[in-house]
Simulated scan of single mutants.
Amino acid sequence: MLHDKRLKHKWDQANVLSYAREEGISIGEEKGREERNFEFVVSLLTHTDFDIPKIAALARVSATYVKQVTKKIS
Rank of each mutant, 00 (worst) to 15 (best):
M1G: 13
L2Y: 12
L2H: 11
H3E: 13
D4P: 00
D4T: 11
R6V: 10
R6P: 05
L7T: 14
L7N: 12
K8S: 07
K8W: 09
H9V: 04
K10W: 11
W11V: 01
W11A: 04
Q13E: 14
Q13S: 09
Q13G: 09
V16I: 12
S18F: 11
S18R: 14
A20P: 07
A20E: 07
R21D: 14
E22V: 00
E23R: 07
E23V: 00
E23W: 01
G24K: 02
S26P: 01
G28C: 01
G28I: 09
E30R: 09
E30D: 05
K31F: 11
K31E: 13
K31D: 11
G32H: 01
E35I: 06
E35S: 00
N37C: 02
N37T: 00
N37W: 04
F38P: 00
E39H: 06
E39Q: 14
V41G: 02
V42H: 05
V42W: 02
L45S: 06
T48Q: 02
T48K: 02
T48A: 04
T48P: 03
D49Y: 09
F50Q: 08
D51M: 03
I52C: 06
I52G: 09
P53R: 07
K54V: 08
K54W: 01
K54Q: 12
I55W: 02
A56K: 05
A57F: 05
A57Y: 04
L58E: 13
L58Y: 08
A59K: 03
A59E: 11
R60T: 13
R60L: 01
V61H: 08
V61N: 06
S62C: 03
S62W: 00
A63Y: 00
A63H: 04
A63K: 14
T64D: 14
Y65W: 03
K67E: 15
V69H: 04
T70K: 14
K71Q: 14
K71V: 10
K72L: 10
I73C: 02
I73T: 07
S74K: 14
